[in-house]
Design a protein around this nucleic acid. Structure first.
Lengths: 143, 143
DNA sequence: GTAGAAGCTAACATCGGTGTCAGGTTCAAG
DNA sequence: CTTGAACCTGACACCGATGTTAGCTTCTAC
């Protein structure tokens, strides 16, 4: 398939797909005219890449682990070197920390939400001016 | 306390503390000479801010929810407006999605790690015939 | 053969928290 | 008073995936 269809099917922009290729994450055959031609497996691969990006990995890291994943395009491919394993372990710890941060923050949000839901309406309706000052002069009403 | 001590005690750079103040997240009294003077409660507040930043919230959002949190500096403060609650709910969903991404990516990493640990050294290091650009610089950068 | 949709490359912009430097002022201790 | 550490403001740089535009080429259907 060509890039437009791949973009449509994965929900990833054409721009990003070209970027992935530039970073070595995605390969494409070319037609005589230079248009990219992707195999079916590209869909799964792009989804995988997106997941890893979403987890905060950098393209360089993704580049290294892609050949070590089994279902990327059917081939089990390579085995991670000890150095890579070390890097991935560090990455894993970072992910763990991030998850913990997220869980804690989610609790904070929940508490605010619940407090607001379980509370009566504000005595004075939509009166409080608590947003007009992000960049300008917040110090005057940050309370 | 002054900014240096607060930075030391929270592990947040002075630069960031000033930025927080600029965004209205942190207030400071000033000495006659203009130096910032923080109360003890600032330490907790900065930690809170950091958590929320770590969860991917923007300063504007943090700005809005800070007064709705109870232990920020002892005062229970304000109650979230319905509009804010809606926004926080959306944020909560984003966090949930992120957590799921992270969990999935962690599994992927684990699999690669386990595969490498449970496997012998590569029998033949020639498994990668064609590489457009190498691990070091996929396009144009130097690690 | 031709029109229009779809692709191509290249370059620049963006976002937002943080690093860093420059040049000047304040604070605290001798 | 003097000195050096600490602080001040302001400005610019960065990271890295993605958006966007421009100008041109290829593909496809008629």
């Amino acid at each position: 398939m060509r890039i437009g269809e791949l973009a449509r099917r994965t929900g990833v922009s054409e721009r990003s797909l070209r970027y992935y290729e530039q970073q070595g994450l995605l390969v494409a055959r070319r037609t005589d005219g230079g248009h990219r031609e992707y195999p079916e497996a590209a869909v799964d691969r792009v989804v995988h890449i997106q997941e890893l990006f979403a987890a905060g990995l950098h393209s360089r890291t993704i580049y290294k682990i892609l050949p070590c994943m089994r279902d990327s395009d059917g081939s089990p491919s390579e085995i991670a070197t000890p150095l890579l394993v070390e890097e991935l372990t560090a990455e894993r710890e970072r992910i763990d920390r991030t998850i913990n941060d997220l869980l804690r923050s989610r609790e904070v949000l929940d508490e605010v939400i619940v407090t607001a839901s379980g509370a009566p309406s504000q005595p004075s309706p939509s009166s409080h001016p608590s947003q007009p000052s992000h960049p300008s002069q917040p110090s005057s009403e940050a309370a």
